[in-house]
Amino acid sequence: MKRRVVIALIGGVMSALWLPRARAAGKVYRIVFVVPTGQYLDAKEGDAWKGLVTAFLQGLRELGYVDGKNMKFEFYSAEGKFGQIDEIAARVLVTSPDVILAGGGGANEVAHAFQRLTRTVPIVMANSSDPAAQGLVASLAHPGANITGFSGNTGPEFEAKRLQLLREVAPNAIRVAYLGLKLDWESPAAIGVRSAAERLGITLLHAEHAPSNYEDAFGLITREQLQGLFVARNPWNFSNRRGITGFARDRRMPAVYPTREFAEVAGLICYGPSLSDLYRRAAGHVDRILKGAKPAELPVEQPTKFELVINSRTAGELGLNIPAALLALADEVTD
């Protein structure tokens, strides 16, 4: 009789333990992907935004999440209008999402918008910039609230190396434009680039652009007859990469860019973290949160995969001979 009681008790305990899992198995999770600029559904095949969202969704599929079955995926873009990020955040939170994915180089702006409205809904940043300095997390190791994710920060030394690469492929380019926002120019990364320019004998001028206006920046580059272009890492440069690489080609100006997506639209040389890898890894953070992990205890992770991509066709059009040693180091040479 006692044996039957023990078995019954064990059975009851096991049922209680499995009950939450059974409920979780039948739940359809709402995962909302928000970016400050860019498109996914209306993007053309091959467009970088489409590729990055696809990388995130592929990461989720590998972990067992299928859109329309056990999760519902939604994508929102502010289309470059800062004010709309707050409007999107308010609209999304009314519908009680399970996780917010803050995407783009402007992941900070997205995270700030949601942070102003909630301290409970989990937010995963796919490609943030200095989240601790921006007040989004207490520290990278211990975020401390409802925000975590990945930082795309490369640091001053890495950014200085990008300028060195430009010097290697275009040694005669001694007057170079730094294409970025005022915020970029004043950042620790840019200070590292400016110090490197002094060591390399390069005159570096800030060609400041507005979030959606490059006319003044391009005008300064033209007037000053600058010989090279260093493109800062920010969401606006990413979204306007076709116009930027087109401007550089029209002026026959060698340029160095922050990610491989620029090489895909005729950018000469690109060196930086793999964005697709960051987005794929972000799916892992989402999975851990949906399984019960707290964002406050999930460290903000750094890039682990970096890519050097050289566009040989653009090099040929500019009459540049890429050093054989550099070609050997490249992860990919496109044409």
Rank of each mutant, 00 (worst) to 15 (best):
I269N: 00
S276Q: 13
L290Y: 08
D277K: 08
K294D: 12
E297C: 00
G292K: 01
E297P: 00
P295I: 12
I289Y: 03
L275H: 01
A283S: 11
V286Q: 03
G267N: 08
A296Q: 02
V265C: 04
A263H: 07
I289P: 00
H285V: 15
R288S: 14
A296H: 02
A296K: 03
G292P: 01
L298Q: 04
G272Q: 04
P273A: 15
P273H: 05
E264F: 12
K294F: 06
A266T: 12
A296W: 03
F262I: 08
G272R: 03
G272L: 08
L290C: 09
R288A: 15
P273D: 02
G284P: 00
A293N: 05
V286G: 02
G272A: 07
A296P: 02
D277A: 15
I289N: 01
R281V: 12
L290E: 07
L268S: 11
P273S: 09
L290D: 07
A283R: 04
A266G: 02
K294M: 12
D277R: 10
A263F: 09
R281M: 11
I269E: 03
L290W: 10
G267C: 09
E264H: 08
F262S: 03
L290Q: 07
S274K: 06
A293H: 04
E297D: 15
L298R: 04
R281K: 15
G284C: 00
Y279I: 13
E297A: 14
I289V: 09
G292F: 03
L298E: 09
G284V: 14
S274M: 07
V265H: 03
I289H: 00
V265I: 08
P295H: 09
P295G: 09
I289T: 00
A293Y: 09
P273I: 01
E297W: 00
